[in-house]
């Protein structure tokens, strides 16, 4: 339990102290103004997305990007939703289990590689990490062949052509980052805690379950957010590894732009719709994300 206290201790009380030291009022006002200015800059693309999505197709044009719609309409939103909807459920079925399983795997790997080490654990960790860096676009053809091969070996349709295979690919390519997050996080847990558990006769799994898991919240938050975002937003794997029935929302979003004409307002409405889940997650879990970062996850 001391660990929890420690983890919390690094953030909350200190923060309180910090607020008291806010600095001189003038400087505070300047900082606030600067931050506000950056908010405006950051929101420029969002503004264009929003106003365009409420325009009829005739007004949706780059030359009128800054104007408010002359006639407000939600027509584009309706069309966008109709076209996107079939993919949204697929995205959910992909991103929710995918990010949870990724986090579990990352947690187990991180635990072993930091606290229950075997000879060569550092080498294994480094080799795992390196997986983060392959350029995926270049290996799509052999990857498809590999998954088709797995289909044939297992006599199933699980690996190529559906959500399970896509999820698997994301989980596997997510192992490096998830392991990194958890390992860096677990390194901050004092070894004495593990030793104490061992003296009490707890094995690896029991120690994991009763000592490690209870303090893993922030790292889980970071991993789940990270993986959920990349699974939800992924287009490349989705388009190559799944078929029309299992296309997630990003492929549907891409399809709204045709080969010859682009109904901009629909596309922008769809872009907003497709981004809502991830944005909501960031806003809701942003605090935990920060806490996880402060506790060392992702810091290297």
């Amino acid at each position: 339990m001391t660990v929890i206290a420690k983890v919390r201790g690094t953030t909350a009380p200190q923060h309180a102290k910090v607020v008291r030291r806010g600095g001189a009022p003038v400087w505070r006002a300047v900082r606030f103004a600067l931050l506000l200015a950056f908010v405006v800059l950051f929101l420029i693309p969002v503004y264009v997305l929003l106003v365009t999505s409420f325009k009829p197709l005739t007004e949706a044009d780059p030359s009128q990007a800054w104007n408010l719609p002359r006639t407000w309409t939600t027509e584009a939103w309706q069309v966008a939703w109709e076209r996107l909807a079939p993919g949204v459920w697929n995205s959910v079925m992909l991103a929710v289990p995918g990010s949870l399983i990724s986090a579990m795997l990352g947690s187990m790997n991180g635990y072993v590689l930091s606290k229950w080490r075997f000879a060569g654990a550092d080498v294994v960790f480094t080799l795992l990490l390196f997986g983060m860096f392959i350029p995926y676009q270049g290996v799509m053809i052999p990857l498809v062949q590999l998954l088709v091969g797995l289909n044939e070996i297992t006599g199933t349709q699980l690996f190529y052509g559906g959500i399970p295979g896509l999820t698997l690919a994301h989980i596997v390519y997510g192992i490096p980052i998830c392991t990194l997050i958890f390992r860096n996080y677990y390194v901050t847990i004092p070894d004495e805690l593990i030793e104490a558990a061992r003296v009490d006769g707890a094995g690896m799994l029991r120690t994991y379950w009763s000592v490690i898991i209870p303090v893993s919240g922030p790292a889980f938050a970071v991993t789940v957010i990270w993986q959920f975002t990349s699974l939800w937003n992924d287009f490349l794997f989705a388009v190559f590894l799944t078929g029309p029935q299992s296309w997630p929302a990003t492929v549907m979003l891409n399809n709204i732009a045709g080969a010859q004409t682009v109904p901009y307002s629909q596309q922008m409405a769809a872009a907003i719709l497709a981004s809502i889940p991830t944005v909501v997650i960031y806003i809701l879990l942003g605090r935990f994300f920060m806490r996880g970062l402060m506790a060392g996850a992702l810091k290297g």
């Binding site: 693309p45 264009v48 997305l49 365009t52 975002t229 937003n233 992924d234 287009f235 990003t250 979003l253 891409n254 732009a257 682009v262 901009y264 596309q267 922008m268 872009a271 907003i272 497709a274 981004s275 991830t278 944005v279 997650i281 960031y282």
Partner: peptide
């Protein structure tokens, strides 16, 4: 949180 598939046009 947003992919470039979504914001590329903007």
């Amino acid at each position: 949180a947003i992919s470039f598939i979504a914001t590329g046009v903007v």
